[in-house]
Simulated assay, not measured.
Amino acid sequence: MKKIAVFCSANNNIDPIFAEKTKELGEWIGKNSYTLVNGGCDLGLMESTAQAVHENGGRVIGVVPSKIEKNGHISKFLDVEIPCEDLSDRKQLMIVQSDIIIALPGGLGTLDEIFTVAASATIGYTNKKVILYNINGFWDDLLVMLEGMEKSKFMREPVSEHIVNAKTFEELCNLIENS
């Protein structure tokens, strides 16, 4: 059974289309009997994904930093809770616990997670890629920046070796199934 780490926003004040697409992904993960690995928080896209996976028969592993626990924001949809100290610990545990890594729209934390995976892969700490689920073109500007870095020879390998763009839900599902 594949374990899919999902990095994403824990913010509730975002365009509802992101929650809709996230729920669709969570339903698909659950119905296909995959396991979701997430940050264990009960807010934003993190919670909507966990709820959809849980309600559709999948398992949810939450890697929960002590501050999230202290603030009472642990998702009630976790089947397994892995406590950790901070965001660095959470990120590393999520990478280790997963077979596939997806980044949904998010903020600074999500960017940190994407670049940790990609940078680690460039020097051989992991062979995992990050699949950007590019809902409504959310990641387009980032991809342009990365392509510019590649063209300017600031990357030794093509960015696509470490970061993959899924423009549609169908592309995303195909990438998961063929990983």
Rank of each mutant, 00 (worst) to 15 (best):
N13W: 07
M94D: 07
S88C: 12
L93D: 05
A50E: 03
G44C: 07
I95T: 08
E24P: 01
K23A: 13
D89Q: 12
I74H: 06
I74G: 04
G39P: 00
K91T: 12
E47K: 10
V53D: 00
G44F: 03
I100W: 10
E27S: 11
K31I: 07
I95V: 13
E27P: 01
Y34P: 01
E24S: 05
L43T: 07
Q97F: 14
F18V: 02
G30N: 00
T35M: 11
Q92M: 11
L93C: 01
Y34A: 01
S88Q: 14
D89P: 03
Y34H: 08
T35C: 11
V80W: 02
S48Q: 11
V53Q: 03
I14T: 02
Q92S: 10
I95R: 02
K31D: 12
Q51V: 08
G72W: 04
G30K: 00
I101Q: 10
L43G: 05
D42N: 15
S75I: 03
L36M: 04
V63W: 03
M94G: 06
G30I: 04
Y34G: 00
V63R: 07
K70A: 15
D42M: 07
I95S: 07
V37F: 01
N12D: 15
S9F: 08
K67Y: 14
F18Q: 00
N32M: 08
A52C: 06
N13G: 09
V64K: 05
E85V: 12
L43R: 12
E20S: 11
I29Q: 04
V63S: 10
G44W: 00
E55K: 14
I95D: 09
L78Q: 01
E85T: 13
Y34Q: 02
N32Y: 03
E81Q: 15
T49G: 09
M46F: 06
S33M: 12
F77Q: 06
S48R: 10
R90M: 11
K21V: 05
M94Y: 07
N32T: 11
G40P: 04
G58E: 00
